[in-house]
Simulated assay, not measured.
Amino acid sequence: MTVTLITGANKGIGFETARQLLELGHVVYLGARDVERGEQAAATLGARFVQLDVTEDDSVGKALATIGADEGRLDVLVHNAGVLGDGTIDGPKALRVFDTNAVGIVRVTEAALPLLRRSTNPVVVTVSSSAGSFWAVNNPDRPEYHLPVALYSASKAAATMLTIQYAKAEPGIRFNAVEPGTTATDMTAAFGIGRSPEQSAAFVVRLATIGPDGPTGTFQDETGELPW
């Protein structure tokens, strides 16, 4: 059985990724900050719930300790938790966005590494965004060019870079960042754009289920590697 942890998985792409991986036979730990919502989502899917706030060291440590005690290893980690931080920009909001979207990746990865190293096929997927790609945001033909989400874009650029650097530092683990596609979720509701979470999650699942000969250190969407 493949043991998988997904952060921010009580709704949207994370929830749908959990559903699809459960259908493939994974043991899925659904991580969520809110206990009530997380437990409800896990019960709906038949997943296992762990309270996990990526902005709190204690929460992250306890979640990974639970998985370690129950399973002894972690095979797949999906960094999905994220916030948009649109609207007026100020220091506190910037700290919150970067803490969730970038620093959270460091917290969870560092806590998960001992368990990932025990896996025979460890995989880490970061749900990043081409909104953090210099190439995309400077291309008038791309939707990212028109999105007024400076903090989100900057934090996702950091998320992609962290993923690439972890791939270099941990050659025994496959780390990849993905652009899942513009998706209609609570986070993008104000923009009225995007396809279904089911469609976007399918690509996340594809990268979460690669074998030992799969890619590592890449940033890609469904069509292949993206410039960034």
Rank of each mutant, 00 (worst) to 15 (best):
A136C: 10
V124R: 00
V204D: 11
L95C: 01
P143D: 12
I105M: 08
M1E: 13
T2I: 02
E170K: 08
G217W: 08
A18I: 10
P180Y: 12
G192P: 08
G224I: 04
L84G: 09
T109D: 01
A201S: 14
V3S: 10
A42P: 09
P212V: 09
R19W: 05
V123S: 02
R174D: 12
A47P: 10
P148Y: 04
T7E: 06
P180N: 14
L95N: 09
G87H: 14
F134V: 15
D213K: 11
K11Q: 12
A102V: 06
A32T: 12
S129T: 01
D53E: 08
R48N: 11
A136W: 03
L162V: 15
R33Q: 14
I210D: 10
A63D: 04
A154W: 00
N176E: 03
R195V: 11
D86F: 15
V60A: 09
D34A: 04
V103E: 01
P122V: 05
D186M: 10
Y152Q: 00
T185W: 12
E39D: 04
I173M: 09
D221C: 06
V54E: 02
M161D: 00
V76L: 08
T216K: 02
T109A: 05
A189C: 00
R33G: 15
V97A: 10
V108Q: 02
F98S: 08
F175V: 05
A169H: 06
N10E: 05
G46T: 09
V76Y: 00
A167R: 01
E56H: 05
T55Q: 12
S196P: 02
A9H: 06
A32F: 02
G192E: 11
L45A: 12
E144D: 14
A111N: 06
P140S: 06
L24M: 14
L52C: 05
K11P: 08
S200E: 12
P140K: 10
T120Q: 09
S200C: 05
G224E: 12
Y152G: 01
V106R: 14
H26F: 11
Y166C: 05
V124S: 06
A42T: 08
G87W: 10
F219P: 01
G172P: 05
G8K: 01
V54P: 10
R142G: 07
D90C: 13
E198P: 02
V106K: 09
P92N: 09
L5P: 01
F219W: 07
N138L: 11
L115K: 10
D57S: 04
Y152C: 05
N121T: 04
V27T: 15
S196K: 12
T160S: 13
G211D: 15
A190M: 07
T218E: 15
R33S: 14
L151F: 09
Y145E: 07
A65D: 11
T120Y: 11
L52W: 04
Q40K: 15
L162W: 04
F15G: 12
N138F: 03
T218V: 14
R174M: 13
V137T: 13
T2R: 15
R96Q: 15
V35M: 01
V103T: 14
